[in-house]
């Protein structure tokens, strides 16, 4: 397998602080992050490592200093709006790991909350890489934002490289099928892709199933305008109670399961991979069911 790209940087550089309006906004945001998390969070975030060069970015374009400022609003949502509660986060091992979660809620806030949990609660703290949709790089402002906070286009090669470098990645095998499903299908896992299993086998990566409970109710889609979506070239066009999706202040629970390790050939027939994928799916479904039963209220 190809070696992960190494930065030529050997020393830790003190990156130049940006000046002007952008610089001021950034330092204000960074202060907001620390205000919410206290000295404890500041110490945790200082432990983040990335092979940064003298311009403060890693080979994939992640900029830690930018990330620390950019997470402030997400951290506010995490602490005050969704009041995220993590269960069993100690199941997430250090080093190479694949977090595999159910996807729901019309807006991918579940991914955002899972990412924040890796920064503020997991041990060691880390920037979790989501494998974003292939059209994300065509969106102005969003594309560079994603890159600076460590999100990477979800090609198999990128995933392989990140795992080989010992990173934590986040996968939603349901994709938009899960994200944009209508309300009557809540807490029912949709069809899984097989790609994640091939990569996990190839790189011998443990899979940690994560049941996200709460997000399924945040923005309830009544029906999906499939014909209009097709016309507009969108994956789905869900109509929610608020017409356009607006997340309700539901309470999030993140249940982390024990790491699942699989062995076998990554280039095996689909039927063999499907059997392994079904095992992961069944495990995640039972974790979701238990999570729904054990919570007291949606809010």
């Amino acid at each position: 397998m190809a070696h992960p790209p190494q930065s030529t940087a050997l020393a830790r550089y003190e990156p130049e602080r940006p000046r002007g309006l952008f610089g001021r906004v950034r330092s204000a945001m960074e202060k907001w992050t620390y205000r919410q998390g206290g000295a404890d969070l500041e110490a945790r975030l200082a432990r983040l490592v990335a092979p940064q060069n003298e311009y403060g970015v890693d080979p994939f374009g992640l900029e830690l200093e930018f990330t620390k400022a950019a997470i402030a609003p997400a951290l506010w949502l995490y602490k005050n709006y969704f009041r995220v509660e993590c269960h069993g986060i100690e199941n997430v091992p250090a080093g190479r790991v694949m977090l595999l979660a159910n996807h729901s809620g019309q807006l991918p806030l579940d991914g955002m909350m899972l990412g924040i949990s890796m920064l503020v609660e997991a041990e060691p703290p880390r920037v979790c890489r989501a494998m974003v949709e292939k059209w994300a790089p065509t969106l102005p402002f969003i594309a560079p934002f994603f890159a600076r906070v460590g999100q990477v286009v979800g090609t198999p090669e990128n995933c392989r490289r990140l795992l080989a470098a010992g990173e934590t990645i986040m996968v939603f095998p349901e994709g938009t099928r899960g994200l944009n499903k209508t309300y009557e299908k809540k807490y029912q896992l949709q069809e899984f892709g097989l790609g994640f299993m091939r990569l996990a086998l190839e790189t011998q990566t443990p899979i940690v199933p994560v049941a996200v409970v709460g997000a399924e109710e945040q923005s309830q889609a009544l029906w999906d305008f499939k014909s209009v979506a097709r016309l507009l070239g969108l994956p789905a066009l869900p109509i929610t109670a608020t017409v356009i999706p607006f997340p309700l202040p539901v309470k999030y629970h993140l249940h982390f399961g024990a790491p699942m390790k699989f062995t076998g050939r990554h280039d095996d027939e689909d039927s063999e991979l499907e059997r392994k994928v079904r095992e992961v799916k069944a495990q995640l479904q039972s974790m979701m069911d238990r999570g729904v039963q054990s919570r007291r209220s949606i809010f």
């Binding site: 080979p59 292939k134 790089p137 990477v152 286009v153 090609t155 090669e157 990128n158 490289r161």
Partner: peptide, 9 residues
Amino acid sequence: QPDNDNFLT
């Protein structure tokens, strides 16, 4: 390309 790998081989 928008969907290029970050490190093309």
